[in-house]
């Protein structure tokens, strides 16, 4: 069958275009994925090694970049124990697994993804509502163990339910949250004033 349509409007032309455009985009995506994976593996430039939970972490405005960035300070071992990279990874891993098994992300956002019924947890470790750095770890663990009794709700009356989190799970979650707060998220959340950074 012969068509009088111009070439640029023909079926064959668009078929080829579709194939090349799709293939090209996909190849580019794969290349970029390799590079991104390199940059976001733990211990890489953007996502610190798990043993970062041994350090003091904060979040400050970077004057030259004009955006907030995590800063890693001196020794500040979590629950007073200095962990090897392996031990730290195991703890963080347990925390992450608990976060998934308890379905936290259908109430909270992590890195801004998830549900919008409860506060973003990206920098929860650094939240000023924990009061002071010294008592923070204990308060967090207690909160996770019994969020109903330790509720704040800021007048909203919206409480986090008791999720039957055990003591080891709670500690692991805190480790995970501490580690997550050290990820360089390109300035999200903006304007977040971290604990210990009060003027």
């Amino acid at each position: 069958m012969t068509e009088q349509v111009p070439r640029w409007a023909s079926e064959v032309f668009w078929k080829k275009t579709a194939i090349w455009v799709t293939g090209g985009s996909f190849v580019l995506l794969v290349i970029l994925t390799f590079d991104s994976m390199k940059q976001i593996s733990a211990g890489g430039p953007r996502v610190p090694a798990h043993s970062v939970i041994n350090k003091d972490i904060s979040y400050r405005l970077d004057k030259t970049k004009q955006r907030y960035q995590p800063t890693i300070g001196g020794e500040a071992p979590l629950f007073g124990k200095v962990l090897s990279e392996e031990e730290a990874e195991k703890l963080v891993d347990h925390g992450k697994k608990t976060v998934q098994a308890k379905n936290c992300m259908n109430c909270h956002t992590l890195l801004g993804n998830g549900a919008y019924y409860a506060p973003d947890l990206t920098k929860a470790w650094l939240d000023q509502s924990w009061g002071a750095k010294a008592s923070r770890e204990e308060l967090m663990v207690n909160f996770l163990l019994d969020p109903e009794k330790n509720a704040r709700t800021f007048g909203s009356n919206r409480k986090m339910p008791n999720l039957d989190i055990t003591q080891p799970e709670a500690e692991a979650i805190v480790a995970f949250l501490k580690w997550m707060s050290s990820i360089d998220t390109n300035g999200f959340p903006h304007n977040f004033k971290a604990i210990g950074e009060e003027e």
Binding site: P119, K123, Q128, S129, F154, R158, K193
Partner: peptide, 14 residues
Amino acid sequence: ERAVEGSTWAGYFA
């Protein structure tokens, strides 16, 4: 929440 309060726990509820 995002711009003024900086996405804190208190800012979320504000």
